[in-house]
Computed example of a mutant assay.
Amino acid sequence: MAKPTIRSAGRHDLVLEQLLDAAETLFARQGVAGTSLQELADAVGLTRTGIYHYINGKDDLLEQLVRGFTLETAESLRALAERTDESAADRLHTAVKSMAQRVAEHPKRFRLLLTSEDSFPETLAKQHRAARRETLLAMSSIIDQAKTEGSCRPVDTAHTAFALIGVANWVAFWYPRPGQDSDSPAQIAAELADIALGGVLSSRSVDAGAGAIPGALALLREDVARLDHLLADLPQPPT
């Protein structure tokens, strides 16, 4: 079989994107079970036979949906957690920003993902659940790295990871705002990351004078909490 040309590959991706757009509307209105392949084909100007050049069926569309969000997010965050060329604080900002931007680019599609979870075939459902766990673990790892390097406040790691993921995911329910000019997904994501991490990352600055004492004490408490975190990671002596 001849390899696809750049043109044919581009055509395939374009039609697949149109099918996902059609699925956003039809699945949301009628449900996955209530939508036929013929309706999906009609929505993008394909025949019932022609649609099989792009997908194998509705399960294939659901898999594309899961890959575009859950699986790719897990892969991206896992790679960020393993990097050593940037500070953990910078990587944490990138993690939140990239998640929020992915959702902001296709908010309806993300909402469809959430409402279609019960329709996933078992194999796909397992992949979806595993990727969500990996996303949480990767986010938690980056937070712990930030705590170790001293750029993160002594926050509860699990609570913070859930909160940051929640901030990114919630974009799907309010962006873009109806009747108002909206910033681009990239701008929204960057602003949300700044807001979300404002209460997580440590500034480590204390003003001079008598009023600096409470701030200095707060920094000391952060350092003690960081020391506790580092000691907890040390191997325990044999009893």
Score class of each variant (00 low, 15 high):
Ser203Asn: 07
Ile142Val: 14
Ala210Glu: 13
Leu71Val: 09
His159Met: 11
Ala212Arg: 08
Ala146Cys: 07
Asp21Val: 14
Lys147Ser: 09
Glu105Ala: 13
Gly10Lys: 07
Ser151Pro: 01
Gly45His: 06
Val167Asp: 04
Thr5Arg: 03
Ser87Leu: 06
Ala89Asp: 13
Glu39Met: 13
Ser141Tyr: 05
Gln64Ala: 14
Ile188Pro: 04
Gly45Tyr: 03
Asp13Val: 06
Pro178Met: 11
Lys108Glu: 14
Leu62Phe: 07
Leu234Gln: 12
Glu122Leu: 07
Leu217Cys: 04
Lys97Arg: 15
Ala193Arg: 03
Lys147Ala: 07
Gly45Ser: 06
Glu63Gln: 10
Glu191Thr: 12
Pro185Gln: 11
Lys126Thr: 13
Ile165Tyr: 03
Arg102Met: 12
Ser116Ile: 06
Ala81Tyr: 02
Glu86Asp: 11
Ala212Asn: 08
His53Gly: 13
Asp60Lys: 04
Gln30Val: 00
Lys3Pro: 00
Leu230Trp: 03
Thr47Glu: 11
Ile188Arg: 13
Leu16Asp: 04
Ala81Glu: 02
Ser205Lys: 09
Ser202Glu: 13
Val66Ala: 15
Ala131Arg: 01
Phe162Gln: 02
Thr157Tyr: 05
Gly199Ser: 07
Gln30Arg: 06
Ser140Gly: 14
Leu136His: 09
Ile188Tyr: 09
Thr135Leu: 12
Gly45Leu: 05
Ser141Phe: 03
Asn169Arg: 10
Tyr54Leu: 03
Ala100Gln: 01
Ala81Asp: 08
His53Arg: 15
Ala190Arg: 09
Thr47Tyr: 06
Tyr175Cys: 13
Thr73Tyr: 08
Ala196Asn: 05
Ala138Thr: 03
Ala232Tyr: 03
Leu46Asp: 08
Ala216Asp: 02
Leu65Ile: 03
Ala212Val: 04
Gln127Phe: 05
Val200Ala: 05
Thr160Ile: 03
Leu46Phe: 12
Pro214His: 04
Gly198Tyr: 05
Ala43Thr: 04
Phe110Tyr: 15
Leu19Glu: 02
Ala100Tyr: 04
Ile165Glu: 11
Leu20Arg: 11
Gly199Ile: 05
Ser76Gly: 09
Leu65Lys: 00
Arg67Pro: 00
Ala130Ile: 08
Ala81Pro: 04
Leu231Ile: 02
Ala168Gln: 02
Ser182Asp: 15
Ala89Gln: 05
Val200Gly: 10
Pro121Thr: 10
Asp85Phe: 07
Glu222Val: 01
Ala158Gly: 00
Ser98Ala: 14
Ser140His: 03
His128Phe: 14
Ala208Gly: 11
His12Asp: 10
Arg204Ser: 10
Arg111Asp: 04
Leu201Ile: 08
Arg129Lys: 12
Ile165Cys: 06
Thr148Gln: 09
Ala41Cys: 11
Ala125Thr: 02
Pro237Ile: 05
Arg129Leu: 12
Arg153Ala: 13
Phe120Ser: 06
Glu117Gln: 14
Pro178Cys: 01
Ile188Gln: 14
Ser184Trp: 11
Phe173Thr: 15
Leu217Ala: 10
Gly211Val: 07
Gly45Arg: 01
His106Met: 12
Gln38Phe: 11
Asp207Leu: 10
Ala23Leu: 07
Ala79Arg: 11
Asp228Trp: 00
Leu113Ala: 11
Ala130Cys: 04
Gln236Leu: 14
Val167Cys: 11
